[in-house]
Design a protein around this nucleic acid. Structure first.
Lengths: 259, 259
DNA sequence: CGGCATTTTGATAACCATCAAGACGTGTGG
DNA sequence: CCACACGTCTTGATGGTTATCAAAATGCCG
């Protein structure tokens, strides 16, 4: 399933989706050395506390996540990353990673030399803007996760997670194939929304019984999107997807302004 | 209590704390028009959904917070901001605010013209780096809040919040006066860590009975810092405070590398 | 001094965690 | 191709943490 998409065009396309690039920008990007790397499921790309590595990576194909472990042995997944997402801006400017980065599925990354990318960001305003936008959206997503975990019940949390996943996959340009499958185990879902896998199981079968979701193998699929949106209190404003990029009115997950 | 500290030196000092500035950088900063503004307690600086305003602000004195409201009427505070913190990088690059910004105490902000700051960030690599560092640390804090809310019980959550507050105030250079007072109501504390004010009350009196914290008026004060750190599973790595900036070994809140 | 926000306390119930054990599936190796 | 092993899912029983509701006490501010 993961394609062989590791060339510079990936990076150009990613940045161009955020901001208009000039010829000089594109030339500069193409001049930066890139590498593609493949990762097995569950492979660690970075560990908490590790000093910056040589590369700053973005997801080429597949899915990644970041998580932190608590002293008590608990685990909290703090973010999910779809193709096109940068994984570790921290590498560029901070002295240590504050969380673990792990492959959720078999995946590939496009690895950019940190020093070169830092130059690109700091010397080319358009590229700098594009990365700023990415980082700020990531921060907004993180805040919404906090809200989700802090102020919604288990049912709404799961639904909200799924809604966000669908909108982000669409915005990333991943073609839909009878819905998007979220390939997480029930334990991983629990770790993402702050409940136990046992409770995830019970809520999931309730949702399936209601027809809100479908379940296949190790995956979840959105069923009734409109119902999902209201059940999950989902308002995609925080994803800052441009209306142009958000496909299909009436699909139940429009990007509107409503409060 | 809030001083009259709105001149450019505040901004220079803030940025210089993150990265070494050259003469040209400082000159550029000093050339940017600044304004100081005062806010009453509970005043809204920004509302969710609002388009970018003219100014990007940083806290001069006092405390601010950001929060989001849920459809069900709940409220989640997603961040707390101490003097020196930038409040809304989003203004610079995104089309709408994704959460509300509100004054926790009477406070002042240093307001920087957005266009001018954007120029500064994109044209001056050192200044760009400084803001990147700030934004990345803010993101790391947001992730830790997610962990706190998702995977710790009410007692540890409160203690963790207090520990973080102390370290951040110290790092911000706020002089300590028999400990730092966190001036939040029990309802606000509940909204920050995802529990109800009633439960906050019960946990708070337990903590006070143990001597872990002191309570005065509408404030909380750290008592036994070493005990706090372990009770809150607090590891300040994620705050990325440079060891040099972290005062006083043995104070119980050292910035170490331990997992 | 009065009004209002905040804190406090108690009683009850909901939601979710925990523990345990069995069923199911999926991938691997013989 | 089958058998086995292991991860994942499922289910039940029980208990704990926290929410909810209500009301009184306290303290702050004008």
């Amino acid at each position: 399933m993961p394609p062989e998409d590791a060339h510079p065009a990936t990076v150009v396309a990613k940045l161009a989706s955020r901001v208009a690039l000039g010829a000089a920008d594109i030339e500069a990007i193409l001049a930066v050395p890139l590498e593609m790397r493949r990762w097995n499921r569950a492979a660690y790309l970075t560990r908490e506390g590790a000093p910056p590595g040589r590369y700053c990576r973005l997801v080429g194909s597949g899915l990644a996540l970041r998580h932190k472990l608590t002293v008590a042995g608990g685990r909290q997944i703090v973010s999910l990353h779809v193709p096109g997402d940068f994984l570790d801006f921290q590498q560029l400017f901070l002295a240590a990673a504050d969380c673990n980065i792990q492959a959720l599925t078999p995946m590939s990354t496009v690895d950019i030399d940190c020093a070169a990318l830092r130059e690109l960001v700091l010397q080319h305003p358009n590229i700098g803007s594009a990365l700023w936008i990415d980082a700020l959206i990531e921060a907004a997503i993180s805040r919404e996760w906090t809200v989700n975990i802090g102020r919604r019940d288990a049912r709404a949390r799961i639904v909200h997670l799924l809604c966000e996943f669908v909108v982000r996959m669409r915005a990333a340009g991943i073609p839909e194939n009878n819905g998007y499958e979220l390939p997480m185990t029930q334990e991983q879902i629990g770790d993402a929304i702050g409940i136990t896998s046992v409770h995830v199981n019970r809520v999931l079968r309730m949702l399936a019984a209601e027809g809100l979701i479908r379940r296949e193998r190790r995956s979840l699929i959105c069923g009734d999107l409109d119902a999902m949106r209201s059940a999950g209190e989902f308002n995609p404003l925080y994803l800052h997807v441009s209306p142009a990029a958000a496909p299909r009115e009436g699909s139940g997950l429009d990007v509107g302004q409503s409060t």
